[in-house]
Design a binder for these strands. Structure first.
Lengths: 129, 129
DNA sequence: ATAAGGGTTCCAGTGACGGGAAGGTCAAGG
DNA sequence: CCTTGACCTTCCCGTCACTGGAACCCTTAT
């Protein structure tokens, strides 16, 4: 398969696929004309990467997970640790955002949103004394 | 005030303050020796920026908000729009993360996390058929 | 012969800084 | 007077995971 078909097949942009090769996540073959030729295993890896990225894993996490995926002698505890750490990061991020959401939604509610200049949002940002 | 004091006073890293000058968010004066000299208004702006950034506003939003803050003839509706849009972004992001969290926490729970290779996390990423 | 629609490489930009090098300035201590 | 150390300056590169675009090659159809 050429890169365009692979893109259609995996849902990943062509640019992304080339990037993944660049950073050695996949190693497709080359045809005589220089075109990349993707084998089933390459496509399988790309789908794996797509799903892992969709769960928010970093590229380096993906690299680790892919290595574990291919290692028949892995310990599931190694996989679980990566996932648990990432889950903790997600939770932290959600908490962060919820904090912002709290403050911000109160401010938005308090703002008249008319053509007058008086505004509790700016008052807060300016350090309402 | 020199940049170090301002940093201590505002809680913003020195690098960040210099960056904010670079992108014209603030315009401190210069002493004869080339050192930046910050006036009260500069410090006030920096604190404003710190609070806005802490609420997750982008730098461009901050620029807009700062301009509105300084414009006595603003309409609060303009401020509110910026804040409401940002709030919507935050909500979208939270939903995103919650989706990931859902999937990921189930997978983590399902994984034994021992020294055996069998792992539902990898099974899922690999496209468990 | 040409045009469209693939493919290739390489370079630059994104957002919001952070790290670090190379060098100027200032106050205190010996 | 000299040195030390803590400041300050500019400048450039790196981050993360791509994305856009230029310049060029290959294939197929007309």
């Amino acid at each position: 398969m050429n890169i365009g078909e692979v893109s259609a097949h995996t849902g990943l942009p062509v640019k992304t696929i080339r990037y993944y090769e660049d950073i050695d996540l996949i190693k497709p073959l080359r045809d005589d004309n220089g075109y990349r030729r993707f084998r089933d295993q390459d496509i399988h890896k790309l789908k794996f990467l797509g799903r892992a990225r969709a769960l928010g894993f970093t590229i380096e996490d993906c690299r680790t997970l892919l290595a574990l995926y291919e290692d028949e002698t892995r310990a599931s505890s190694d996989v679980k640790r990566v996932a648990r750490d990432h889950l903790a990061q997600i939770d932290a991020k959600i908490d962060d955002l919820k904090g912002m959401r709290e403050t911000l939604s109160h401010l938005v509610d308090a703002c008249a949103g008319d053509d007058r200049p008086d505004c509790p949002i700016l008052k807060d940002l300016g350090g309402k004394p």
